[in-house]
Design a protein around this nucleic acid. Sequence first.
DNA 1: TTGAAAGCGCTACCAG
DNA 2: CTGGTAGCGCTTTCAA
Lengths: 351, 351
Amino acid sequence: MAEDTGSAPPRVTIRDVALAANVHVSTVSRALDPSKRSLIAEATRERVVAAAKELGYQPHLVASGLRRGQTLTVGIVVPDLGNPIYAPLARGATHALEGANYMPLLADTQDDHERLARFLRHLAERRVEAIIATAARLDDAQLLVEIAQRGIPVVTAVRTVSSTGLPAVLHDDTAGGRLAAEHLLDLGHERVAQVRGSLEVEPFVRRTEAFTAAVTAAGATLTDGVPPVPHLTADEGRSAALALLDVDPARRPTGVFVQNDVMALGALMAVRDLGLRCPEDVSIVGYNDAFFAAHTDPPLTTVRLDAYQVGHAAGVLALELIADPGQEHRGSSVPPELVVRRSTAPPGSGA
Amino acid sequence: MAEDTGSAPPRVTIRDVALAANVHVSTVSRALDPSKRSLIAEATRERVVAAAKELGYQPHLVASGLRRGQTLTVGIVVPDLGNPIYAPLARGATHALEGANYMPLLADTQDDHERLARFLRHLAERRVEAIIATAARLDDAQLLVEIAQRGIPVVTAVRTVSSTGLPAVLHDDTAGGRLAAEHLLDLGHERVAQVRGSLEVEPFVRRTEAFTAAVTAAGATLTDGVPPVPHLTADEGRSAALALLDVDPARRPTGVFVQNDVMALGALMAVRDLGLRCPEDVSIVGYNDAFFAAHTDPPLTTVRLDAYQVGHAAGVLALELIADPGQEHRGSSVPPELVVRRSTAPPGSGA
DNA sequence: TTGAAAGCGCTACCAG
DNA sequence: CTGGTAGCGCTTTCAA
């Protein structure tokens, strides 16, 4: 009888424990459920627990979930895990779910409509009990609504689609855009511009409108823009900033609002590419306060979006909706905050 | 009869489809399973499919999984999603799993032994079919081995623990450390130093040893080090670099190997804090080639670790082990690559 | 090719 | 307080 090494050890079930403890399986089930402690004699409970430990029993969450009608999972859909804002967001949500024994199923859509559609369907088939969607573009509205109508609570976060009326953890992008504008205006900038994200994404629309409105209201000049940047990468931010800045100095903006820190990284390079200095010749305001913002050269002035907090709130909201689906949760809003560092200064301060 | 808005729509099961299509549930099951297409009359299949679509039937992957003995999930454990190396790693793994309809359950241990222990247990209770562990410290060895012995394939990635003998997707940190050393030596540096990560983490041990060995072999001076940095943050990298550089210029290292790009971000600040210039006074070599490395000032010379590729390979390996647990997969190794940018130059090149 | 019946591992209801 | 029984939604033998 050679030892059968390598072969998987037989999985211990509740039945095995019942046999070992000389009780019925239903008794084992109760003995191992903390919420049923009162229903069982202390002595049997101890016997069962001992047998379970002895045998190395591990509960089967999937089986118990099937019976209980729950999966203890929540889908989290992000557009791009590589974008530094989504890591803290996912962490925040994960931590909120952890306490209730829920776990996230994480999917990365790469900002693609088709992939989002596939994932939403797949998450539904896995019977996630809620979905936290941070990857929505305006043309995803119908998709999200359909899922919600199928009875799965959908929480949108950061990238909301207000036309859907879905519960949302917002970030006040309007206030954020205004904050960026007012900061540049307060410093005395009279020619400003923005490097925008895709207008298929609601927050970028909001930032754009708010910035534009504040600048216009103050009578400053919003110089001709560049087209919205499709992908939120440093390289694309760099190209856009180059196009914006590589013009006759008399018409060149002295302050630029770049709607995302990763793109702002590229904008800082563009300034150097052109032999200009930041902030002496051009001030740059970013958005998000990503972890590297304090460590660029010069350190980046940026509008803080507390992604961890947004994620956490989204997780909490998802749990509430799971517990009480009928409830009218319209969600909450996380305010922006201007973080002034050294990439902004009064115009011409270097001359 | 008012419309019962708001209440969850009743979930359609295979039974409902069977009723609608006038067949037995087992027939529905077969009709909807592509691999059983040959077992069923085309006409009935069409009828069933039509009924399913009509009713809006969605398969219940959890229930089918329970019966089939699979969950289609793989646990991925990372030390810190905020560390930019783990986002691409998770993406690589996710993409590898996607094709086989597997999804990751992602957990973030915050580099904490207790949290890792909790998560591993929890993942086991959820019956993940494999675990990709990238968060292992040397003192986690036993934990990982226990899980593997319970019959769940464990793949370690990046942060391997070689004493466990677990299948691993390695990155050749020894070659990486040597690459960093040789680069500085080739440039003519004679006093070098390193900012090390925790020696509880095998890759940092490897990088440290390889760097030290190469420097010593070349007869250069390895200046007194600073203690390993516990957390891989820019701030801690900055403090460590300050301690290293804020000394008598005659003894100050001219080249520093910082074993992680995030810490290198801090090291670059430390150089500026001291009124020194990089690379003229101090050359800095980072590790990982994180996305921001090309965008620091100066752009960071670094040893590239292709995290996406490691993650992808780990995902593929996990799937192989699921399909064939007995197999002897010792894993693969992803080579490092030196990416030379402008944070390194010959010593004294600015004087 | 289809139907019937058993059961994945667990929980919850009903008796006693 | 404990045992028996049914069943979550699905797949898979085994017969017909």
